[in-house]
């Protein structure tokens, strides 16, 4: 089994829905250790993605991911806009023109996305950023794909790892992004970007798992 453009599109739509539902929670998380806009930023971005998906019907998984990337880049702003945008852009490049994605391709695109975020944002593990959700997720995905997992299962494993990774940011002291200005006072809070990663991966897994 593998995912076509239709399924990837459905996953993205589901991601937008989940972000919208969690908008205020993300705002609250960012209000605690940042500037309170993360929920609004992500929601504005994914609403723009939905609007683009009404206008265009990208033919391949790669085209869907590219549309998501460029739309996020030109509508989110802030730190998360270029970072999530880069992740989707690198993922799109990696999958190329493929008609559908198997678990290995999914894991590879996740890996490319994470590498992109690291290249742009220079965060290391335990800096209390989205990296702390993304890295465990991609490792879990690679392992699952390596064991011959299905796309749905692979994404589900990745989502679980992301969730654990996000939660692991709570005790950390931030060293990147706006939360880093708080120093020790950033400890005890969940990183909003990491939470977004976990929410999105869970939404994607949900859709693929249902196929």
């Amino acid at each position: 089994m593998s995912c076509t453009a239709r399924e990837v599109t459905a996953a993205v739509r589901r991601g937008a829905e989940v972000i919208s539902v969690h908008r205020d929670e993300l705002v609250e998380l960012d209000r605690a250790i940042g500037d309170g806009d993360h929920g609004e930023n992500m929601d504005r971005g994914f609403r723009a993605v939905l609007a683009q998906l009404e206008l265009a019907d990208p033919p391949t998984p790669g085209a869907v991911l590219k549309l998501v990337a460029t739309t996020l880049i030109s509508s989110v702003g802030g730190a998360s806009g270029p970072l999530f945008g880069t992740a989707f852009l690198r993922a799109a490049s990696t999958v190329g023109d493929a008609e559908s994605l198997d678990a290995t391709a999914i894991a590879a695109s996740l890996r490319a996305g994470v590498d992109g975020v690291v290249a742009r944002g220079k965060a290391e593990p335990e800096d209390k950023t989205m990296i702390d959700a993304l890295l465990p997720a991609v490792r879990a995905a690679e392992e699952s794909a390596g064991r011959g997992g299905e796309p749905g299962g692979t994404l589900a494993t990745a989502a679980e790892a992301a969730e654990v990774g996000a939660r692991s940011t709570v005790p950390l002291v931030a060293r990147k992004g706006r939360a880093s200005y708080l120093g020790d006072r950033s400890a005890g809070h969940l990183d909003p970007g990491a939470r977004s990663v976990a929410l999105l991966l869970a939404a994607f897994a949900d859709v693929e798992g249902a196929e």
Binding site: D35, G36, D37, E40, N41, R44, I73, S74, S75, V76, G77, G78, A79, G81, P82
Partner: peptide, 11 residues
């Protein structure tokens, strides 16, 4: 940009 949010590259 939006309030307290950097503008986007296209802008």
């Amino acid at each position: 940009g939006a309030v307290f949010t950097s503008p986007t590259p296209d802008a």
